[in-house]
Design a protein around this nucleic acid. Structure first.
Length: 493
RNA sequence: GGCCCGUUCGUCUAGCGGUUUAGGACAUCGCCCUCUCAAGGCGGAGAUCGCGGGUUCGAAUCCCGCACGGGCUACCA
């Protein structure tokens, strides 16, 4: 537990919606960074926007984080030495910090109305002033006068006083390098609203400073706001952390990911049946690479080898096909027992086919063995196992029947198959024996294996595509197999 | 308008001045295996490294312009 690293990182979502895949990736990077550094991973809920934040969203986000397997060391539910971890529970702290800044002359009250602000802005645009921000009107107010107006109940905000002679503010960014901004372009932005709540740029910094955050890893939509936040760190007298701004995730058309691109929330992927490990694997490698070769990266490797140096700067387009491939790799790597409990049985139950107790363990194990390489999503398994649960009257696909059964001479093949299978002793009704019984038939009947087995397949499974026949028949049981062959005979030519 | 960021196969990426005829993966195509479908194996095609200038014996890699895309510029986060 003891580590020589004091890296402290945080993932601080706003509960204004579900956890998006972009947010999930940010969370993964923070988590992986903390773990690789032997540091601390903190979960904080940035809910300073009371109109858009909800407790329900917070619950959903926490649940998604747990599903992702991103365990946090400090957070709203587990506590920690730097609590509270929910910004709405820290309101007095922000107020105190803001007032201290005013007292120290590093921030000031502003009484400008919304109309005045927009007039100033319009005027700046009209005179083609490159600076269109706040004109610092109230900065010149006498502090005592301002105090009196506040006490008299006049509505006001609190603005940070950006030092005019600050020069370049440089953001030390682990993925972009040093990024310089001229402080002259920063306006005296609001840190406290007239309704008595702090703004994001202020609350985040107060919390990050208070929690001793050493690395801020977040979306690059925050990069331009970072110099403002650095002003707050400086006013607060706190050291600024190292930043790492990661790019956005885009849809197939290169536009910002939205509903029209399909699933965007973590929960939707979970509900579709994606494995958390596969999902994390895919997202981790979307915008970060271990070595340019690795495509499958176990969680433990991610947690030990992650590095900010290999995070890419440019936005990445989400590719559902590659996600599926990664998922398939994880399914393939599962042992059969896990496949049965985690994928097969839940899928059969969800499809209403089997509550999990209709057969013995060996039966499910055999089914797992033939279905696993044919399964990416759980529903694939259910779809492919469906024909095992339909009794004698399995649904026959018309086209398959027309193509494989309703042909001259097929009736004799099916009869031959039936007779050969009937001759297999009940206690040796296994895939091997079944295959051995059918194997010689095509030659004897003077036909091709493809056509012969094609006919048998349609008769037994109702379709031209099915899992391997020997195993399928073993699972079906001798009686059903013979009955299905029998009932197909009238359709054969 | 101003400021900032980004730009290597269709997609995710490797690449940090010469080892590059730009490597890997997904997707795609072909072959093999094969009772179908998968899985697996092998192979092909696919990127003049956004464009234009420089610097250098040598540039995807360094510098400068431009273009395009994105972000910030809110009493949103």
């Amino acid at each position: 537990m003891a580590s020589d690293s004091c890296a402290r990182v945080r993932f601080a979502p706003s509960p204004t919606g579900k956890l998006h895949i972009g947010g999930a990736r940010t969370a993964i990077y923070n988590w992986a960074f903390a773990r690789s550094m032997g540091g601390t991973f903190i979960l904080r809920i940035d809910d300073t926007d009371p109109t858009r934040s909800t407790d329900e969203n917070t619950r959903v986000i926490l649940r998604a984080m747990r599903w992702l397997g991103l365990d946090w060391d400090e957070g709203p539910d587990v506590g920690g030495v730097c609590g509270p971890y929910r910004q709405t529970e820290c309101l007095p702290l922000y107020r105190e910090a803001a007032e201290r800044l005013v007292a120290e002359g590093k921030a000031y009250y502003c009484f400008c109305s919304a109309e005045k602000l927009s007039q100033d802005h319009d005027a700046a645009v009209a005179r083609k002033d490159p600076f269109q921000g706040y004109q610092r009107t109230c900065r010149a107010l006498d502090p005592c006068d301002a105090r009196a107006r506040v006490d008299a109940g006049e509505p006001c905000t609190i603005r940070i006083k950006v030092p005019l002679d600050r020069g370049d503010v440089v953001v030390h960014d682990a993925v972009h390098g040093d990024v310089a901004f001229n402080a002259k372009e920063l306006d005296d932005f609001i840190i406290f609203r007239s309704d008595g709540t702090p703004t994001y740029n202020f609350a985040t910094v107060v919390d990050d400073a208070r929690m001793g955050i050493t690395h801020v890893i977040r979306g690059d939509d925050h990069l331009s706001n970072t110099p403002r936040q650095i002003m707050v760190y400086e006013a607060l007298g706190a050291p600024a952390p190292t930043f790492a701004h990661i790019s956005m995730i885009l849809g197939a058309d290169g536009k910002k990911l939205s509903k029209r691109h399909g699933a965007t929330s973590v929960e939707e992927y979970r509900d579709q049946g994606f494995l958390s490990d596969a999902f994390v694997n895919y997202l981790a490698l979307l915008g970060w690479s271990l070595d340019g070769e690795t495509t499958i990266i176990p969680r433990a490797v991610l947690a030990s080898r992650f590095s900010l140096e290999h995070v890419s700067k440019n936005p990445a387009i989400m590719d559902p096909e590659k996600l599926s491939w990664v998922q398939q790799q994880y399914v393939l790597a599962m042992d059969d027992t896990t496949f049965v409990t985690d994928i097969l049985k839940p899928a059969l139950a969800a499809a209403g086919l089997d509550d999990g107790s209709m057969h013995d363990d060996a039966w499910y194990a055999l089914l797992a063995a033939i279905l696993k390489p044919r399964t990416t999503m759980p529903h694939d398994a259910a779809d492919k196992a469906c024909f095992l649960y339909e009794g004698v009257e399995v649904a026959l696909d018309e086209k398959s029947v027309a193509k494989n059964i309703a042909k001259e001479g097929v009736r004799s093949w099916l009869e031959a198959a039936r007779d050969a299978l009937a001759a297999v002793a009940d206690d040796t009704w296994k895939a091997d024996a079944i295959n051995a019984a059918l194997e010689p038939l095509p030659e004897v009947l003077g036909t091709g294996k493809r056509r012969f087995f094609g006919a048998v397949r349609v008769a037994l499974c109702g379709n031209q595509v099915s899992p391997p026949l020997g195993e399928s028949m073993e699972l079906l049981g001798k009686d059903i197999v013979l009955a299905r062959l029998e009932r197909t005979l009238p359709l054969a030519g």
